[in-house]
Nucleic acid binder design. Structure first.
Length: 1042
RNA sequence: GGGGCCGUAGCUUAGCAUGGUUGGAGCACCCGGCUGAUAACCGGGAGGUCGCCGGUUCAAAUCCGGUCGGCCCCA
């Protein structure tokens, strides 16, 4: 470090005079960072050094950024700045934008005032997608503004963009790779589907739309073939009954054939009471016994050409509700579909893509509307057992409120289930923070990973790059070039890898030469962002080296909701394509709640805009607050909480800087480094270095809150112990060795603190840096401080701790005795052993001042304490077990002196147990009394002599007078070092006190004269005047600048 | 319906893995003190059935089982 200190360096615009000035100063610093290109310089500084690979999770910029986004940015920035200051080249350190997906389409539909696929087609896909492209960046400026304001350093100019051809090309390459492994296949799959929007919905869209609803609850009778009995079956979706093909029972579930109101029914035993109440059991059997039984079709309209209508077993059958016999309609339930696939029963689907029947008497009717008609039909046919309604949660389209259908669709999907073991193995190499996610939420998810439904029947997204010819040959280009090489005819000038361009071109089959048609799907938008590790580099088409150097990623962090979003898709794609984990460290972030612990949401109106907080309190304050508790836990947040926190951290430190500045200006201190020769200074520097060590350790393990608390604690110690204790050392007129030592310690501490805090509070750190380093460019170009073990003195820290505790005890004694601190006392005696005696000796002056006593004595004290017992349960418990309580009770009833003697003499026998000195500790307890106070947790007792003699009383009065003169000085707004003339009018004790402590008063108040006036000398009563009453006596004081 | 996390003072939290004397802090509150860092500071006080119930144990905030509540994810 250079020893140059220039207190005038900080520009006026960055000066802070009150809490309110912080946001403005931050804006100034932002401006200066831009002008001086500090971020670029930081990157330049570390270019070519060891890399720390970071991947930005791309936000979708067609929504406004909120508090949760601010949190991710704050956390990312902290980690990256920390690593950067440690000499890592953060790589690639670029932003990213997620561009595709249904939300964008919906935004555009709204703008156009349309809301169906038909209308989009009519409007024109080309123009529609052009509008989508525009809409994607609707809020990009807001995002960049918020990110910059919070101090997040990342390269926005080179951001990766998922909708650009280069990015899509890389995604295509991955898809081709997956296809070639035989893992990308097309099949029917049952997906949640909005019949009105005409598309399947992604799982997280579905999750948004669950709500309570009423549905019919019907019990129907399936006639058993060649037997006078029925299978009793329950469903809430009567419209699926015409498509019934099988019934399912649980293999190990107990069933019964019962007689009820003259008919015979099969039903799960456990459901009899609930469904039928009383019923006569004729025969019992297991589910497996029912397997293979045939039944007569319930609603016989849709042609069925294969074998069906029999009972089989399935593990999803339960007896939680219904009858334990489940109706299976493979077109409308995932379980149903998979079961029929297993049984080799092809599905029937008498429902079109608009959710209307295409067959049956209800043809043309929306399925949900058909429910009552079907129930009526069943009733007429005598096939209805009972009908009612049920309340349950059911998914609705979050956008148009149409009930979703589970619906079998032609779908491309990735056979993730085949990669299950690889996923689990790769997950093992990841460091999850918090750790429980690894085998908890995330691990469990991988354990029963589902195949990935990849295709989407929409418009704005990465097109599925699969072309087929009539003979069934498949062409799947891994790049634009490969595609265009196989195109027949003209390629439009404005060709891009989106619909409709990819649909409009004609590809010639590489095998048979026939024209090929593209499979008309997009892919799940999550596949886009999950491809970011390689697609951001346009790998493998370009930048192979860049990618290889940046994979796997060292660090990612996003909200906990990404566990099954981005964290998963990254892992999935990386496992498919590279068969290794894509990241090494994942830090997840909890939800930000409002002041009352409720989830923030726009509709509730309780959302806090991060920009408001930063403009009102400051980005640093907000950052530090966010860092202060475990980032992975959900936390409450409000501007007030931020303000409160900043007042005891940033603002407190700011006051220390002010204190330093004022004194340095008065003394002409210029950052000289002198010898440290004072215990307090040594202690401060020891604590400083210990703090550096702690902060580094915690940041290395991503325990951000622990690092933050280490800083918080240090600021408290610096302000409320070091400066408070050292204040007077800075006031003395000349530069003494002690003062030099103090300056050196405080100065070193502040400048080191600016470095230490730079990743946390980048703006405030910059200010302190300017204040303490003078005309250097930026704190962010410095290296992160390394603890100097030579400066750490654990014993000293421990001892100081003891001294602080003893001082507290002394003050407590005063309080109990009701003697105010300004009143000097003669003596404090401290009862302790040699170890503590040495500590007291060491900090004698500190203690005297803190407790305001003339003298302190150490050593054993007699006559002021009594013997007492302390029972060691830890040693007695295991030995005495059940007798413990009795023994303790007995012991408490004994005379203490006697117990002490017996213990000392080799043993105390109670109820057949021998207790030794380890079991019962005898110690001296202070007598009930105002002067004696135990130091908590230490074998130290202080005894305060609270007698006030005449001399002490006068000194106390002198200090009262000094305080009042100081108050007046302050009210006159005098400079620190301004000299004054002081006159007074008083009699009695006050006059005596002034005469006795005249020099002392003059020195403390910087008075060049201190004279008594007589009432008649009116002309001398000039200057600032005040009358006071001290301990019942009156005094008048006049002050004028000399 | 399934899985996960969390529940300690009004708020933010430590302690919990490895059970042990009286569950620690900070903010806010009340009382007192201090007064040239002052939207501070120092001392004290009040505030806790450690979500609830049960179990294990001489001993449970801590271990086990259940339950309630919050949140997240999945259906």
């Amino acid at each position: 470090m250079e020893n140059v200190y220039n207190p005038l360096y900080l520009p006026a615009t960055m000066q802070i005079r009150s809490v309110a000035d912080f946001p403005r100063a931050e804006e100034e610093i932002l401006k200066e960072w831009e002008e001086k290109k500090i971020f670029e310089k930081v990157r330049e500084k570390n270019r070519g050094k060891r890399r720390f690979i970071f991947l930005e999770g791309p936000p979708t910029a067609n929504g406004m950024p909120h508090m949760g986004h601010a949190l991710t940015r704050a956390v990312k920035d902290l980690v990256l700045r920390y690593k950067s200051m440690n000499g890592y080249e953060i790589y690639p350190w670029i932003a990213g934008w997620d561009c595709h997906g249904l939300p964008v389409e919906i935004e555009v539909e709204k703008k156009l005032g349309i809301n169906s696929k038909r209308e989009i087609e009519k409007f024109g896909v080309k123009e529609f997608n052009r509008l989508c492209r525009e809409s994607v960046f609707k809020y990009r400026d807001e995002w960049i503004k918020m990110s910059k304001r919070i101090g997040f350093w990342i390269d926005f100019n080179r951001a990766y963009v998922t909708m650009e051809d280069y990015y899509i090309e890389s995604v295509w390459w991955a898809l081709k790779n997956i296809y070639e492994q035989g893992l990308l296949v097309k099949d029917y799959k049952v997906v949640p589907y909005c019949p009105r929007c005409g598309t399947p919905l992604s799982s997280h869209e579905v999750a948004q739309g669950y709500r309570e609803t009423k549905d019919p609850s019907v019990y129907v009778k399936f006639k058993v073939k060649d037997e006078d009995a029925y299978f009793l079956v329950w469903t809430t979706t009567p419209w699926t009954l015409p498509s019934n093909l099988l019934l399912a029972v649980g293999e190990d579930i107990d069933y019964a054939l019962v007689e009820y109101e003259g008919e015979r029914y099969y039903i799960a035993k456990a459901r009899i009471k609930e469904v039928l109440g009383e019923a006569k059991i004729i025969r019992e059997m297991k589910g497996s016994d029912l397997k293979g039984k045939r039944y007569e079709r319930l609603i016989p309209y849709v042609p069925v050409e294969h074998d069906a209508f029999y009972v089989t077993t399935a593990d999803f059958v339960s007896t939680e509700d219904g009858t334990g016999i489940v109706h299976i309609a493979p077109a409308f339930g995932e379980d149903d579909y998979l079961l029929c696939k297993r049984e080799g029963v092809p599905l029937i689907k008498p429902v079109n893509e608009e959710g209307k029947f295409t067959d049956t008497p209800w043809k043309g009717m929306f399925v949900k509307d058909a429910d009552p008609h079907i129930i009526q039909w069943l009733k007429e046919q005598g096939k209805l057992f009972r009908k009612g309604t049920v309340k349950h949660t059911y998914p609705f389209c979050w956008r148009c409120d149409t009930p979703l259908l589970y619906y079998a669709l032609d779908t491309w999907y990735i056979l993730m289930s085949k990669k299950r073991d690889d996923l689990l193995r790769n997950n093992e190499s990841v460091n999850w923070k918090p750790e429980h996610l690894k085998h908890g939420r995330f691990g469990n998810f991988l354990e029963d990973v589902k195949d990935w439904a990849l295709s989407r029947n929409r418009y704005w997204g990465t097109p599925l790059p699969i072309w087929k010819c009539p003979s069934g040959h498949v062409f799947i280009p891994g790049s634009k070039k490969e595609l265009l090489a196989n195109v027949e005819g003209e390629i439009p000038e404005d060709f891009e890898l989106h619909r409709p361009w990819v649909d409009d071109i004609t590809v010639k089959c590489p095998v048979c030469g026939a024209p090929m048609k593209r499979e008309p799907y997009l892919i799940d938008v999550w596949f886009d962002s999950g491809s970011a590790p390689f697609a951001q580099f346009h790998y493998p088409h370009e930048n192979e080296g860049d990618f290889k150097n940046a994979f796997p990623v060292d660090f990612i962090t996003e909200g906990i909701d990404q566990t099954r979003g981005w964290f998963y898709t990254l892992m999935a794609i990386s496992t498919l394509v590279f068969n290794r984990a894509p990241y090494k460290n994942v830090l997840t972030l909890g939800l930000i709640l409002d002041e009352d612990g409720e989830k923030m949401s726009k509709s509730k109106g309780n959302a806090v805009d991060p920009m408001d907080v930063m403009n009102n309190v400051g980005a640093d304050a907000m950052r530090l607050y966010l860092y202060a508790s475990p980032v992975w836990k959900s936390r409450r947040f409000s501007e007030n909480l931020v303000r409160e926190y900043m007042q005891r951290t940033i603002y407190t430190l700011w006051n220390v800087v002010q204190f330093f500045k004022k004194n340095a200006e008065l003394d002409g201190y210029r950052g000289e480094i002198w010898e440290i020769r004072n215990e307090l200074d040594m202690w401060l520097l020891s604590r400083l270095n210990t703090t550096i060590k702690d902060v580094r350790r915690y940041l290395d393990s991503y325990d951000i809150h622990l690092a933050t608390r280490a800083i918080e604690r240090f600021i408290d110690e610096l302000s409320n112990w070091y400066v408070r204790r050292s204040r007077r050392r800075f006031w003395r007129e000349e530069m003494s060795d002690d003062k030099r030592s103090a300056y050196t310690a405080l100065f070193t501490t502040l400048r080191t603190l600016s470095l230490l805090m730079a990743p946390f509070t980048p703006f405030f750190a910059e200010i302190i840096y300017r204040e303490t380093f003078g005309p250097k460019e930026s704190v962010h170009l410095e290296d992160y401080p390394v603890a100097d073990d030579g400066m750490i003195d654990e014993r000293l820290e421990e001892e100081m701790n003891v001294a602080i505790r003893i001082a507290e005890a002394g003050r407590r004694a005063r309080q109990i005795a009701n003697v105010k601190l300004r009143q000097p006392l003669r003596m404090m005696q401290i009862s302790c052993d040699d170890k503590y005696a040495r500590i007291v000796e060491k900090f004698l002056d500190v203690l005297k001042e803190e407790v305001n006593v003339k003298d302190i004595r150490v050593g054993p004290i007699s006559g002021m304490s009594q013997l007492s017992l302390r029972i060691n349960y830890r040693s007695l418990g295991p030995r005495l077990k059940g007798d413990l309580k009795k023994v303790v009770e007995y012991l408490k009833g004994m005379d203490v002196e006697e117990v002490a003697r017996k213990i000392r003499d080799g043993g105390l026998e109670i109820l057949g147990h021998t207790l030794g000195p380890e079991d019962v500790e005898v110690y001296e307890k202070p007598l009930e009394g105002v002067q004696a106070v135990e130091v908590e947790g230490l074998p130290v007792v202080v005894y305060l002599d609270t007698n006030v003699d005449e001399e002490l009383r006068l000194e106390g009065l002198a200090r009262e007078i000094i305080r009042r003169i100081q108050t007046m000085r302050k009210e006159m707004d005098l400079d620190y070092d301004a000299k004054i003339r002081t006159r007074y009018e008083a009699g009695g004790s006050l006059k005596k006190a002034i005469e006795r402590f005249r020099d002392y008063i003059m020195e403390e108040t910087q008075s060049v004269s201190l004279d008594r006036l007589h009432v008649e000398e009116e002309e001398d009563k000039e200057g600032y005047h005040k009358d006071w009453v001290i301990e019942g006596e009156k005094i008048s004081i006049w002050i004028s600048p000399s």
